[in-house]
Design a protein around this nucleic acid. Structure first.
Lengths: 247, 247
DNA sequence: GAGTTCAGTTTCATCTGTCGAAACCGAGTT
DNA sequence: AACTCGGTTTCGACAGATGAAACTGAACTC
């Protein structure tokens, strides 16, 4: 059931670009290893990608990073294609059902960033500024993003020199295993006192994780029992979002 | 002389992607025309790009749009590569020098979107929510984005059925000509009563416009004379930003 | 309903542009 | 000096990309 008529050279170039969803900086040889392509093949494709501005070389490390063309293109994702906006209605629906704040996170290197949020309408609510950066080491969404990341990334996360001392790594790994089995994560006053959260992954068409959807609120309201009730709803919402992406 | 060793097929695939910075939706034949490639070549490259998720077909029109992979990649632009963040320090510097609100816009189809902003610290100031969408027909930044857009886009802008009646097209075109000559645009109570603005373009390495940088404030403070003073500073800031992009 | 047009798709023979092995270079290390 | 390990270049062989042309199928005209 193979793919259609497709151009190998172009395919390989795109594969190289996709490597950068796993690590923000890569050298020629690293890419060659990851893609299992010959060094000279990668060399020429990198030259092409760089010339067109899709990749750029870091002045210091001489490694490659994503270039401004990616930004240029992403700025032209039409409104309905930008997941942060595309998902908005679905997130609002979930917020209205659960009556707690709903956020969407993506991993960026060894951190996560909140790319979209709709806040609960209740007087006491979790506020969630878009654009905020947080660690992967704590919080339901952080754990989801780590749990479903590629093994190489997971290794990197644990090797991070900034790993917080008060989080036990082996316990963390056990949690990630559990999260992979359950398909969702919870946190109670982990990252921030007084708030708890539930989170589930959103996958791309190749099974790689794209984002984490999270519901968060005050521990008083969002109790363990309440979270249990929330799980099916958030999973359902995530499923619908996933479908929107892949058409 | 010319570029290094580069892979033609990959180059062409990337060229096809770049077509979508000009129009959000394109059919096979349109792309073939724009890139001056053979239909069957484009056909195969499109199949490749679609298979990898870089393009997606619109269910209704059957035309191609940018796919979720672009979003995925853009989410992984490292902090220092995302111009909206990369430019922040420079925008703050400008804000501190001029003491008025500084915004960054990109064109999205026939609209513009504010992708970044730092507000003036004065009590009376222009507020500038990030993410807001505005027309290209009025406002300094709108005119800059239109003035330096590709001719095809400009034609589209003028052909827009939603073009506001109270803006005279031939006058608008004359203004755009002037803006191209001057290298900057101004507006006084155009889009919004009580506010005036100055704006300059930021170009990518191939000379195509990427964004518009704008300074805006209350007409009382940001008078015509004051705007004249501002011009060299905003041009200087834009120049520095441009350099950051292309390394 | 025969004829026309146009977008998208497939075929196929041609030949060129891509590929990988291997050599090369230059900077660090031992 | 010998070795290692990135990155770069060379070069001959051949897979694979290419474009002309043919085909399909829908939409439109007369």
């Amino acid at each position: 059931m193979e793919g259609k008529k497709t151009v190998r050279a172009a395919e390989r170039a795109l594969d190289i670009l996709l490597c950068f969803t796993r690590q923000p900086e890569l050298s020629l040889t690293e890419i060659a290893r990851m893609t299992e392509l010959n060094k000279s093949t990668v060399y020429r494709l990198l030259a092409t990608l760089e010339e067109k501005g899709f990749l750029a070389r870091d002045a210091e490390t001489d490694k490659y990073r994503l270039g401004f063309r990616i930004w240029e293109l992403s700025a032209h994702l039409s409104r309905t294609d930008d997941p942060a906006l595309l998902f908005l209605p679905e997130m609002e629906r979930l917020r209205d059902k659960i009556e707690e704040t709903v956020s969407l996170y993506v991993r960026d290197g060894l951190e996560r960033i909140r790319v979209q949020a709709v806040e609960s309408l209740q007087a006491i609510r979790r506020v969630a500024p878009v654009g905020a950066r947080m660690p992967l080491s704590v919080g339901a969404a952080g754990k989801v993003l780590a749990a479903f990341a590629e093994p190489a990334v997971r290794a990197q996360i644990l090797a991070d020199p900034d790993w917080p001392e008060n989080v036990d790594k082996s316990d963390y790994l056990r949690q990630l295993d559990q999260i992979r089995r359950d398909g969702y994560a919870t946190s109670v006053e982990e990252r921030e006192a007084g708030t708890s959260a539930v989170s589930v992954p959103i996958f791309g068409r190749n099974g790689n994780i794209l984002a984490a959807l999270a519901v968060s609120g005050p521990v008083g309201r969002l109790t363990l029992e309440r979270m249990e009730e929330v799980v099916p709803h958030i999973i359902e919402a995530a499923g619908r979002m996933q479908k929107m992406l892949t058409n």
